[in-house]
Computed example of a mutant assay.
Amino acid sequence: MNQTERKHQIVEACKASINDRIAVISEDMNRLRDSAINSYDNEANNQWEGNEDEMMNDAGDLQSHLDYLVETAALFNRVDFGKEYDTVEPGAVVITDQRNFLVGAAGEFQCEGQGFIGIVASAPIYEEMKDRKVGETFTMNQITYKIKEIF
């Protein structure tokens, strides 16, 4: 498989991971709403008030996480993954001796049995690797990464 096909698979795996996480959070929110309705219908008012606070906190946490994932998907959709790169920049796949990265998305995902970390341009690690080429190194959190491939 050539690098273009490989990159396409990596980008699609990342997209699927983001969409899967959004679906899971949405399902969790629906279950929480259903649970809140059932609790209100089945319990005395004084018990409902205690559960209501807990459910509202859970709903707020889920909504924050969902908002983050939706923003991640929007950022992902604005990145040009269609070209080949010889330096690290948004849209590049970066294979190092330590980890594999996709610049332009946030979150971890798997592709063909390999782990990838999606990073955005505002991530501190991106600042360390930005504009580097194959064979160069960068250090983050006392770990030195040697770039093996960029595409």
Rank of each mutant, 00 (worst) to 15 (best):
M29F: 09
N45C: 04
D41Q: 09
V103Q: 01
N19F: 01
M140H: 14
D67L: 04
T4C: 01
E128D: 10
N77M: 03
Y145V: 01
N77G: 15
L32T: 12
V88Q: 03
A16N: 14
V88H: 05
D53T: 11
N38D: 14
M55R: 14
S122Q: 15
C14F: 02
Y40L: 02
K133A: 13
A59P: 00
I125Y: 01
G60V: 02
E43Y: 12
Q47M: 08
Q142F: 03
I18A: 00
V70D: 08
I147G: 07
D41P: 01
K15R: 14
E84R: 04
R21K: 15
W48A: 03
N57A: 14
S39M: 13
A121H: 10
E12Y: 05
R132Q: 08
M55E: 11
N51Y: 14
F76H: 02
N100W: 06
A23T: 07
I25H: 02
R6D: 04
Y145D: 00
E52W: 10
D28G: 09
E5Q: 14
Q114K: 12
T4E: 10
G118M: 05
Q9F: 02
L102R: 08
A16G: 04
K130A: 15
L62W: 06
D131S: 15
D34N: 13
D61C: 04
F109C: 00
A13W: 10
D34Y: 06
L102G: 01
N38T: 09
D86I: 12
N45A: 15
V120N: 13
G91P: 08
C14M: 10
R78M: 12
K148T: 14
I119F: 07
K146R: 14
E54D: 12
A16F: 05
F138N: 00
I25M: 05
L69H: 07
D67W: 00
E12H: 10
D131W: 04
N57W: 03
T72Q: 09
A13V: 10
K7H: 12
S39L: 12
I22A: 08
G50L: 09
R132V: 01
Q47R: 11
F116W: 06
G118N: 08
D41N: 12
I10K: 06
P124S: 10
K148V: 13
R31T: 07
Y68R: 11
V120W: 09
P90R: 08
D58L: 14
